[in-house]
Every structure is written in C-alpha cells, then in structure tokens.
C-alpha cells in the first residue's frame, strides 16, 4: 500500500510538471505565435491610431462628457469611469435604493443635456444603466439617435448630417442574426472630428 502510494506520488509530480510545461507554457506560446502571425492587430489590443499616436482601443470604451461628442454607457469602475485596468459592473441589485436614485439622477442629467431629443419621454435604458464591464465601447442605435440634436447644436451642423453619420456607423448583427445592432462611440466621435484613423 505504502509502496503503491509512493509510486503514485512520483507519477503525479512528474505528470504535473509535464502538463505545466505543455499546457501552461507550450500551448499559450503556440497560440501567441500563431495569433501574432495571423491576427497581429487583434492580438495586440485592436489599437486605433491617429497620426501614429495610439488614441484608444476599438473594444475599450472611453468616457465622454463634452456635449459635442456622443456619450457612452455609465461606467461603475473606480476610482474613475472606464478604468480598463480595474473592470467592474455596479453590482447594484434591482431594488437597491442607491441604484434607483443613481438612475433617477442620470435620467435627469440626460434630459437636461438633451432637451430636443426625439421621443424625449422614452429614455434609452443603455444611457442610464452601467455596463457589465464598465468598459462597454458601444451604445444602441436608438441611444445614438437620441443624442443627435445635442451634438448637432454643439457643432453647429445640421441634424441630418449627424444623423447620416450615425447611420453609417451602425454595426449590424453578425451574419444578420447574432448579437445586437450597435454604434461604437470612439469610432463615431473620431469621425465627427474628421480624424484619419488607422490600425
């Protein structure tokens, strides 16, 4: 029995070392090599550049509060919103008074900032609720259209122009079926500033 156990201990240790090497070292390295070879832009964070300067990742949202830009989802990360190095949802429960008063406050702010919004009575839920990661790069098309009059006014452009730009930035469902239609805030705002973005 003891001899048997001793034998098993030896095998277990060796096997653990072998697997640590194989699955913890070789496997991630092989994936890294292939991913860097085949999809280098994606594997390095899908970074967007303007004039060779990195100004963000396509997939990581940024906080916008200026009326001339489109705003994204509220973010619950600390100590500041859209802290990519410390992702977090609010984790507030649906009946938590703190949650309800926070949403109420956001509704008020949103209505004050967008007095001419179309359908002002129907607040888009994604503009007043925090995303799961706190880094959501996107909003729904409805939430983007809601902000068009504000952005147009701040930029002294016509609403039609801005609305057409939003429409051109709507990403449809993958294969027409998966996920939700959405608008990437950072890419849309870069386009508003006519900045030439490259990968």
């Amino acid at each position: 029995m003891i001899a048997e156990t001793r034998k098993q201990i030896k095998i277990a240790l060796k096997l653990l070392v072998v697997f640590t090497f194989l699955t913890g070292f070789v496997y991630p390295l092989v994936v890294t090599g292939l991913a860097q070879l085949l999809f280098p832009w994606q594997a390095n964070g899908s970074i967007l550049k303007v004039n060779d300067k990195a100004i963000g990742s396509r997939f990581i949202g940024q906080a916008f509060t200026d009326p001339k830009y489109f705003w994204g989802r509220p973010s619950a990360t600390t100590p500041f919103p859209y802290n990519a190095a410390s992702s977090s949802g609010s984790n507030l429960g649906p009946s938590n008074p703190d949650f309800l008063s926070a949403v109420q406050g956001r509704v008020k702010d949103l209505q004050n900032a967008n007095p001419q919004a179309p359908d002002a009575k129907r607040i888009p839920v994604d503009l007043v609720t925090a995303s799961g990661s706190g880094l959501d790069p996107e909003i729904s098309p409805r939430a983007a259209y809601y902000q068009v009059p504000r952005v147009a006014k701040a930029r002294a452009q016509s609403e039609e122009q801005i609305r057409a730009l939003v429409a051109s930035f709507i990403q449809a469902r993958t294969f027409g079926i998966l996920g939700e239609p959405r608008v990437n805030i950072l890419e849309l705002n870069l386009a508003l500033d006519h900045l030439p973005v490259h990968h």
Partner: peptide
Amino acid sequence: MGIDSVAEAATYPGGNMEGKETRFG
C-alpha cells in the same frame, strides 16, 4: 421613471440593461 424597456429589433435592446453589454443585449 420613463425609461423605455420595450425592445425593437433594429435599434434597441430594451429590458434590464444594468450590468449588461450593448453587443450582447
């Protein structure tokens, strides 16, 4: 509070979006 919860296939996820990501709805 006047927040719209009705989904619209082409433009809007609706529902309870607290803690959810736009791309998943």
